[in-house]
């Protein structure tokens, strides 16, 4: 466990206050995903999705830093 993959929010559907939904794109494949547990989700955010629920936003800075750290390791 557990299969969860990052996708980009392309639109948000506020109609149900207890179950905020968003259309999320995974390389062009879109799916309705529940973003109720995400703080202030916005169009353009990347969210980690598992069985139709967004678990968290991808921290884009941390992602970049991880890659940079590894590239720097290669220089040493």
């Amino acid at each position: 466990m557990c299969l969860a993959i990052p996708g980009k929010i392309i639109s948000i559907n506020d109609s149900n206050p207890e179950m905020k939904m968003a259309k999320v794109s995974f390389s062009g494949v879109t799916k309705e995903v529940c973003v109720q547990w995400i703080d202030d989700p916005k169009v353009g955010d990347y969210v980690l999705t598992h069985v139709g629920f967004a678990l968290t936003k991808i921290d884009e800075k941390e992602a970049e830093q991880t890659i940079k750290l590894l590239k720097d390791m290669g220089e040493i």
């Binding site: 995974f26 390389s27 062009g28 494949v29």
Partner: peptide, 12 residues
């Protein structure tokens, strides 16, 4: 196809 790849990722 990129989208086929994406669909495969979602469904595992």
């Amino acid at each position: 196809n990129e989208q086929v790849r994406g669909a495969c990722e979602i469904l595992g």
